[in-house]
Design a protein around this nucleic acid. Structure first.
Lengths: 152, 152
DNA sequence: GGATATCATAGCACGCTACTAGGGTATTGT
DNA sequence: ACAATACCCTAGTAGCGTGCTATGATATCC
């Protein structure tokens, strides 16, 4: 009796890896230094105590998601694509970690079909968990966090 | 400049692996067949379409967490340690996946110290995410899910 | 034209997941 | 007694994702 073909998930889908953590730190740094001039990655890396080279790769994901713009050359760097008040933690999370999906079949984006969907009870549980997470991350803007930071 | 020593997280901490999914399915099966007699694992495996041998390992975790009791020998099997109304999804989740902790430093249990804790702004974000998840999983009992299942 | 900065690709050690394999032990029904 | 049933225990392993490092190319300003 081979059941190995029944595997539903091939990995891990709701998680916070260092990507999400570092990505938010970087975005927050850009938000705190938001202005006219682009901010070189090096200074972000130093302030946030991160590997500059690794950060390069991470910010590439943020650029791909159109959350930041880049300026090449000397005196170049990165700037937020929108104002801090128009960027949420959810935007950053999804850019770094993909869609919120405790389970593939309850992904907020392109949920994977499952032949048990009709009678799978636990599905509704993880869907509610997903909604709980989404509510939180979509309601917090970078501006909110900057304001919090100033209080410290 | 070696920054590799700064790694904050060594893995992945908030996730739903197949363990959590399968574990909840098994517990739900036990709840639906809750009564006097123990339920053999084989029948759970067949009904839920899971590998029996793998299920053995998973249910060992549930037993360790005192969520189920076992009866050995012929006609033996497993029974819920408490009534379905006294068992929550959170109980099952924690037995299978460990404490809810999007980040080690905001684990609901033994949070790991972090030297940036005082001024780390993103911390509060993940703490709120954690609370959102906890609220959901601790408020749903197995009895609730059985009732939902009957409606289908 | 060189210093500064972004961009692109490749590769790798490690740890975890999702199992499978193969046995052992306890209890029951006949 | 004894076989059948069911729980119990330890190893091992393929595959995958993470968290980097390494190397170099390309663009732009002064």
């Amino acid at each position: 009796m081979k059941i190995s073909s029944l595997v539903i998930e091939g990995g891990v889908f709701l998680r916070l890896s260092s990507r999400g953590h570092y990505g938010l730190k970087a975005m927050l740094d850009l938000a705190q230094n938001f202005g006219e001039k682009p901010i070189p990655l090096r200074s972000v890396a130093v302030r946030q105590n991160l590997s500059e080279h690794y950060l390069e790769q991470l910010i590439a994901m943020l650029k791909k998601a159109a959350l930041v713009k880049s300026v090449r050359g000397s005196q170049g760097g990165y700037i937020l694509a929108r104002e801090p008040s128009q960027l949420t933690v959810g935007d950053v999370f999804r850019a770094m970690e993909g869609p919120v999906a405790p389970l593939l079949c309850v992904s907020e984006e392109n949920p994977v079909g499952c032949d048990e969907a009709d009678y799978c009870i636990s599905r509704s549980v993880w869907a509610r968990v997903r909604d709980g997470i989404v509510d939180v991350i979509d309601s917090i803007t970078l501006e909110d966090l900057c304001r919090e930071a100033k209080k410290l």
